Amino acid sequence: MTSKTPAAFQVHQTRKPLNQFSVDLQAAINHATKLSTYQKTVVIAFHWHNDDIGVEPLERELLGVFRSVFGFETESFSIPLEDSQWILLHYLVSWSRRHSGEDTLRIFVYSGHAGCAGRVAETWHLGGQCNANTGNLVGPSINWWEVRGYMERHPGEVCYLFDCWSAGSGALSAYKGAEFLAAAAWDQMTTASINFSLTRVLIDELRLLNGRSETLASIYSRIFSCAQQNQAGSAPVHIPKPNSPSVTIGRNRSRPAITRSSDQDASYVLISMKVREDIPLNLTEWKEWLTRHIPAHVLSAKVTIEGAFRGSSLLLFTVPVEVWTMMPANDPCYAFIAHVKSHNLLSQPLTQTTLPMHFPLYQEERIGHGEAQTKGLSVALDVLRLVE
């Protein structure tokens, strides 16, 4: 057994032409930032009749913001305790049919409890109550995966906003016709503080937008940054509709998108890419090579090359969170490394430097004296001069 990843022992790995990276990146940027317009946007929020969390006040506030600030049609539904799944399915299908249309956006909002579903589970249940000790649902429940597919059969765009435990599980079923904003991943609990809940921070972000149009991917990016800054117990998850632009939240007409107050507020994702071409060893040649393969308008979108290495086909990039979520999800040429708040701090020109490395004290027996003398050893390490 070994703690090394399988990739450490692979000689021949899948690689991608660098010019194809620019194509993927440009598509991700367009899908994350392109503003769409709809003739009508409608929102339905549903919760359980036996809800033991007290989600209704926040649900009403969220619907109030959608209605008064954005001008959306809103509706609320309480899931009954008898024939729960059939009645909810019938209600949501009827609502979707009434509000179907190619130029319509339908938003489904759920707040409450949910079971924990792994990636290979066959069901994912929602419920109004759960056992505080075990986390298991108590009382009536519904299998959301048997309900969700019917919501996406009618014309129009669809997105889901789920504020519950294991909320990312809602996007794991076979249906891939909608965008999903979840309070936590499929194996995570949500935060215990209502002030940091997905619904609370979403309300705050929508109020800041004040009716201006913004993609859900960009809204997610700011919510994610807020979760990092507040050290929330779990971070929200964004699952886009494959090969489609992120839906737009706005007053049904194009308006200037909100901008960040400063770059310090932005969150980036450090990713690696395995390229097919050999990276030139000469710094000047390397810069020219990158210029030829990646158009300037792509790199201008706050996408930064953070590193390249001799003897390796690996390149490191930072991209905004909203762009990363829209990139191909299962491409083996791309790998997530970390969330970061800055670019490479060592990429600035440095003078040749020595860093002291202090080794532990050791005993050296001096020949001819028969005594031990304690010595400290300090070694200087030459650091490679870094050049922009």
Rank of each mutant, 00 (worst) to 15 (best):
H113C: 06
P240E: 12
D331C: 14
I44N: 14
S36Y: 04
A380P: 10
R251S: 07
A266Y: 07
D382L: 12
S312M: 05
Q129H: 12
G64V: 05
R255K: 13
I337V: 09
R366K: 14
D382F: 08
V138K: 15
I249Y: 08
E179K: 07
T191N: 11
R98S: 13
T199N: 13
Q264S: 07
G135T: 05
T199C: 10
A32F: 00
V340E: 09
C333R: 04
Q348P: 00
P256H: 13
V323P: 09
M189D: 07
T33M: 12
S76C: 04
F9W: 08
Q129P: 07
H12I: 12
Q39A: 12
I249E: 04
L283T: 13
H238Y: 08
G311Y: 04
R366Y: 07
Q129I: 09
V201R: 15
A178W: 00
H125V: 03
N282L: 08
S254T: 06
A232Q: 03
Q228I: 00
H339P: 02
N252M: 10
H297E: 09
D83S: 15
L137S: 01
A7N: 10
L281M: 11
L299G: 05
C130N: 12
V11F: 06
L63R: 14
A217P: 04
K40G: 01
D278W: 01
R67V: 01
A121G: 14
A235H: 08
E364H: 11
N133L: 02
